[in-house]
Design a protein around this nucleic acid. Structure first.
Length: 550
RNA sequence: UGGGGUGUGGCCAAGCGGUAAGGCACUGGGUUUUGAUCCCAGCAUUCGCAGGUUCGAAUCCUGCCACCCCAGCCA
């Protein structure tokens, strides 16, 4: 029995099991194949598959493909790839709502025969206009009392393709005065002469979500149908359909709140706009909170699963801070990512007392705390580069880096002193001329020098040029508003740095590195090559440096 | 406005009548050749508000307030 994670859903399942309401646990993850999965879906995936794993049950991956206009095979494949990558398996339980079209049709005829559904011939506009409002009841359709035989005939002819789109619709006969608007004679079937990605042209009528979902759940023997809060109002209809048709299984629908993340949205619709408008590089753009985007960015399944676990499952609206996702990434990488050095914004440093025709090899461990990871060789010589922001001409107090006349240690190398600042015509600093102290060599320092700090560096002779994509939040506001999302995009969500990276990092087979003092980086899985290295920044290092308030 | 939900620290979130877990963030301090990691300490006299029941309430009752969802032939 699971002990560690006990949200209200797991408590409910445990109770159902102990009371004998059910003796198995069968769940399902039911995405519509109309886009790529997001980390919001990951929460649902972890819940559904996780719960089944914990209680020895199984989970269906069921595509909710009832709208041929929006769905496609591309998305089906992408979704399967993402779920599998997250580490969950559905065995042979990949199903499609469209697998049940025939059965669904039979249930619909049952409803018609029982006088529980009728064919309405009003236009979509008329139906909308007569639905009523929150405070006023709807009006019954003039076709509401059509005889069963006529309804059956019309419905069969709808199915046979005798009518154009929109001519008729099948509606449940419930109550046009219901306070729950969902119950005001909801549409069950509509005519759509469209080719479906799986059933082709077999059908020209397609069932609506409310009719399809509950019956698919019942047919698959789902013991706990978990969905998000916005379907709460639909639960009454979910139950109505199952109660008015001959199915011998009635799953309970249980709602939980969906995941929201600060500085981004979880909108398939909006992502499609960004992708199609060329605002991002694709559904897997590392700035998007899609599973494929996070994967491309360098996230691992473990990080995402850890995140979902930490976020919890409740019925409370939420907007989780990005820092939590960052934390999950850093924590996973801390012990697993070898360290390396890269200078993202190089400032040339010339070691004036080092011969120009020589260099030397120093040894640096791949990981300070994990000697078993081994070590690599780095080159020290006359011509180096340090990070531009590690030098300041007029440093504030407590600045532990380099400044004119000051000392710093080059990590794994020597202590140097900045003797001269070279500028271009515009006055910009273009080079630092420094001297190094041979007796300060890392590991055998006898110099007695007390440098202010230690900075990373790379030899300009042996370092490799590399593009480093520095990602930032997609939006510049914590809670983007649906109507103004485009205007709230962060214009600096991607910056590409022309960096210098030590050769050992470029040559290694490892994909994820920590560039010391900078962050964690991932070799782009499609654009990286040893000749033209391309890194994506997964996340920065935590940085507690606060310049003195003056 | 009718119906359905939700309100616990900056953000998540335990708690289910016995006197506020945990995580993230944050703030101090220690270690440190990554301002990282690690370690230690601090961080809600109070649970949307107001009443009531009770020896005792975040937990029960009543009223109020705030926010979210629903008027697709989308899911």
């Amino acid at each position: 029995m699971p002990e560690e994670s006990s949200d209200f859903i797991r408590q409910r399942i445990r109770q159902d099991l102990s009371e004998g309401v059910t003796n198995t646990v069968v769940t399902r993850f039911p995405p519509e194949p109309n886009g790529y999965l997001t980390i919001g879906h990951a929460k649902s995936i972890c819940l559904n598959f996780g719960v089944a794993e914990e209680f020895g049950g199984r989970t269906f991956l069921r595509f909710d493909d009832t709208n041929p206009l929006k769905e496609s095979e591309e998305f089906v494949e992408a979704i399967q790839r993402d779920v599998a990558w997250l580490g969950f398996s559905w065995g042979d339980a990949a199903t499609f709502a469209s697998d049940y079209f025939q059965a669904l049709y039979g249930f619909a005829e049952q409803l018609v025969e029982r006088g529980k559904a009728y064919v309405d011939s009003q236009s979509a506009e008329e139906i909308a206009a007569t639905r009523g409002t929150f405070t006023t009841p709807g009006k019954e359709s003039p076709h509401r009392d059509r005889p069963v035989a006529e309804n059956l005939d019309l419905f069969r002819r709808m199915r046979a393709g005798e009518f154009p789109d929109g001519a008729h619709v099948l509606r449940a006969k419930i109550d046009m005065t219901a306070s729950n608007i969902v119950m005001r004679d909801p549409v069950l079937y509509r005519i759509r002469h469209a080719t479906h990605h799986r059933t082709g042209d077999d059908w020209c009528i397609y069932p609506m979500y409310d009719f399809t979902h509950c019956l698919s759940d019942a047919l698959e023997g789902i013991t706990h149908s978990l969905c998000t809060l916005e379907f709460e109002n639909n639960r009454e209809l979910y139950d109505w359909v199952l109660d008015n048709v001959d199915v011998n299984f009635h799953p309970p629908q249980i709602e939980f709140s969906r995941l929201n993340l600060e500085f981004t949205v979880m909108s398939t619709r909006f992502f499609r706009k960004l992708v199609e408008g060329g605002h991002v590089a694709g559904w897997d753009d590392p700035r998007l909170p899609t599973i494929s985007g996070l994967r491309r960015r360098g996230y691992t399944p473990e990080m995402i699963r850890d995140f979902c676990q930490r976020v919890g499952v409740t019925r409370q609206e939420n907007r989780v801070a990005m820092e939590l996702l960052d934390f999950c990434a850093r924590q996973a990488l801390e012990d697993t990512a070898p360290r390396g050095m890269a200078v993202l914004d190089p400032l040339p440093v010339t070691i004036v007392n080092y011969p120009s025709d020589e260099d030397e090899t120093l040894e640096a461990p791949w990981h300070g705390k994990h000697p078993e990871m081994g070590a690599r060789a780095i080159t020290f010589g006359r011509s180096l580069a340090i990070e531009r922001e590690d030098f300041m001409e007029e440093p504030p107090r407590k600045f532990r880096r380099l400044s004119p006349g000051g000392l710093v240690r080059l990590r794994y190398g020597y202590v140097i002193r900045c003797d001269e600042v070279v500028r271009d015509d515009g006055g910009a600093v273009v080079e630092l001329r420094c001297t190094y102290f041979p007796e300060s060599k890392s590991g055998g320092d006898t110099s007695g020098l007390k440098p202010k700090g230690v900075v990373h560096w790379v030899s300009r002779q042996s370092g490799r040029a590399a593009a480093v994509r520095v990602y930032d939040r997609l939006f510049s506001v914590p809670a983007p508003t649906p109507d103004n999302m485009e205007g709230e995009l962060n214009p600096a969500s991607l910056e590409v740095a022309q960096a210098i990276v030590e050769p050992g990092v470029v040559e290694a087979d490892t994909e994820r590195f920590q560039f010391e003092r900078v962050g964690y980086f991932f070799k782009d899985p499609v654009e990286y090559s040893r000749e033209t290295p391309m890194f994506n920044r997964i996340v920065t290092l935590r940085d507690s440096y606060r310049p003195e308030p003056t």
